[in-house]
Amino acid sequence: MSLLRVEHMTHYFGGLQAVSDYALELEPGQIKGLIGPNGAGKTTIFNLITGIHTPSEGHVYLDGQEITGLRPHRIAAQGLGRTFQNLALWRHMTVLEHVKMAHYSRIDYGLVGAFLGSRRRRVQEQEFTERSRELLRMLDIESHAEQLVVNLPYGVQRRVEMARALATDPKVLLLDEPTVGMTAEELRQMIEVIHLVHQRLGLAVFIIEHRLRFVMELCQEVQTLVFGRVVAQGEPEEILNHPKVIEAYLGEDWED
């Protein structure tokens, strides 16, 4: 069975069918893309998979375990990491605090330990700080560790978000438009970062993206979503020439 598997997922917001009969198979180590015009329901699919909304119908399995309808923090603990389209950072916390926060479920020293500075607290603090710094080093932002995120350039903030998602120890990483608003230089760096993460940690990655160049360079397979329905699925080259895709994007500024 695939690492992340979605079957017959349908979702309604009131009377509106936002997603209809969606299916996904993501294999270990695979990078897949999800493209589609604005309002097609891409982010909704992410929200359904990560438990922010519970799908009206259908099933989601992660590593063989059903996760449909679980609370978001349980799904995260099962190994699903995610970033957001609009950066969802904690403005006045430091970069290091962001990444440490993601260790929440593994911090198990209690109130007394926290106040009196028990041995377990010391050991765990050291371990998680070390691990966090390692992730920051990998993403080449360790020099910003003690800075507040609100003061950092956009491209760095994006990588902080990525580091935070990685720190939850995911098996699958969901990236929601990781390059939105980026300069060409930042875009190139982001491609490198995703390659790096993919190779170094062997994660399966599922990406929502608008920029086709990005998708072409990274993804082994692409789904195209229009009005909540997958209209085309396959290798990137194939998808780009697919009549339904061209139709969906006609008039849209997709050539970058």
Partner: peptide, 13 residues
């Protein structure tokens, strides 16, 4: 600062 992402870090809201 941001309420929505916190559960996705494994925090029970």
């Amino acid at each position: 600062y941001d309420y929505a992402v916190v559960p996705l870090m494994g925090v029970p809201l």
